[in-house]
């Protein structure tokens, strides 16, 4: 599988990364090398294998529906790069 420039640009756009031309080219090379190596997996026949996402077969880990007091707002907002007294602030999302 060849990693094209378009694939790198598409992945960069989806993951909100800005790459200049040199970075794009470098990433394309490095990703190609890795993905080429990943293609070794095609040698393994997994036709009848179910994908395994959770390694241990535990299930139904649930908590009770009981309210715990929320955090102090000031503490939650304290690390924000931009905020007002009550909220996190970003540039306007609508025109």
């Amino acid at each position: 599988m060849t990693i094209t420039k378009e694939i790198v640009e598409y992945a960069a756009a989806l993951s909100r990364l800005k790459l200049d031309d040199a970075e794009t080219e470098d990433m394309q090379k490095q990703m190609s090398a890795i993905v080429d190596y990943m293609d070794v997996l095609n040698k393994l026949d997994t036709e009848n294998v179910e994908p395994l996402s959770h390694v241990f077969s535990i299930s139904n880990v649930m908590r009770e529906d009981e309210v715990v007091p929320s955090y102090d707002r000031e503490a939650l907002l304290d690390n924000a790069p931009e905020r007002n007294e009550e909220c996190f602030v970003v540039p306007k999302t609508v025109e």
């Binding site: 997996l41 095609n42 997994t46 294998v49 179910e50 994908p51 395994l52 996402s53």
Partner: peptide, 15 residues
């Protein structure tokens, strides 16, 4: 399917 799902299948084989 070709990569992520395949890797989860390989994970199953390894386990």
């Amino acid at each position: 399917d070709a990569y992520y799902r395949k890797a989860l299948k390989v994970k199953s084989v390894i386990k």
